[in-house]
Design a protein around this nucleic acid. Sequence first.
DNA 1: GCATCGATCGGCT
DNA 2: GCCGATCGATGCC
Length: 242
Amino acid sequence: MRRSILAGPVLEVAPKLLGMVLRSTTEDGTVAVRLTEVEAYDGPNDPGSHAYRGQTARTEVMFGPPGHLYVYFTYGMHFCMNVVAGPDGKPSAVLLRAGEVVEGLDLARARRGHPTPQQSAFNQSTPRQADVREDPPGVRPTPAGIRPGPVAKRLPANPDRDLARGPARLCVALGIGREGNGVDLLAKNAPIQLLDGPGYDGVPSTGPRVGLRDAADRPWRFWIPNDPTVSPYRPHVPKKRP
DNA sequence: GCATCGATCGGCT
DNA sequence: GCCGATCGATGCC
């Protein structure tokens, strides 16, 4: 992974991050994800960017060189992270919104509070007793003894899909919080690293960024089409007045 | 100072 | 689909 790739215009950098791998190592172990969904934020030209109104203590990392990690805290409980892009001094960044866990699956599951396959009925033919729910009236076993119905529908076919589906989940799966802010992702011994990975050859899908009030019309979200780990689109919703 | 609301998520209806 | 949680950055008086 070369820093010069990240130093270009953020709208060119963002799609290039698709298919790249972010790997994080803590005392608990290593988790790596292949990035499947990102959003571009173009600093002073972009009302949706945290850097739109100039540099603050929170946003100072974005004003530094490309390839560093900008982590921020939001909604009183979540962390989200960006890869700083563009040349030194230009505060553009790419929000990492989702990925597929490709290493450290068990650790990622534990951090996200997902049961391991051994602990649950996921993907097993015989559900444990606690997962069995009462059938609604009218539901009967088929002649083969298989009950279609709420139980089968409530258990997702692939729970691992959700491990890093969404920017805050991605941070949890990788064990990244405040202390990740400012880390140089291209440094040789950094605890969090951006690696070339398999890359992505196809044409990314694009659309408006998720949950923004301002500049909601700019199609600066990029994702790998048909990838199940991409998060669902949500428009901005104004809060209700008391 | 104080009020507002967010680059969200999980639980519940 | 709707709602509440929870805190820090920002903006207005």
